[in-house]
């Protein structure tokens, strides 16, 4: 039998489905808009479980921490949130994008 030798990169949406089947709470974050230089394209996902494990990325690592923190609230009240990150933001010193771009991230609960 021929072997499938090419490895699949870790896929956030497949991971989300696995987590869901394992009975975990799952939040899905999606880049819905970008302005200027942005490290990850529109449509990119970060998925987070109830214990703060995550897979994927919505930036080059600049804002993932903040998205994971917000996901905890989304999981507890079930309400989706729209987050914006960028150098113009007042939180820029903490979680801004060093590349100078701006991104909008939609965070929602699975189910």
């Amino acid at each position: 039998m021929p072997e499938e030798v090419q490895s699949e990169p870790l896929d956030p949406l497949m991971t989300a489905e696995d987590w869901m089947k394992a009975g975990k709470d799952v939040a899905i974050a999606t880049v819905v808009e970008t302005w200027g230089s942005a490290p990850r394209p529109v449509g990119s996902h970060l998925v987070i479980d109830g214990e703060g494990h995550f897979e994927g990325s919505v930036s080059g690592g600049c804002v993932e921490g903040a998205v994971v923190a917000e996901a905890t609230d989304v999981l507890s009240d079930g309400k989706p949130r729209m987050l914006e990150f960028g150098v113009a933001d007042e939180t820029a010193w903490e979680v801004g994008l060093s590349c100078g771009g701006r991104i909008k991230v939609y965070v929602e609960r699975l189910g």
Binding site: L13, E17, L110
Partner: peptide, 8 residues
């Protein structure tokens, strides 16, 4: 996201 949508 709807779980059925994710599965589909």
């Amino acid at each position: 996201m709807d779980p059925y949508a994710l599965k589909k």
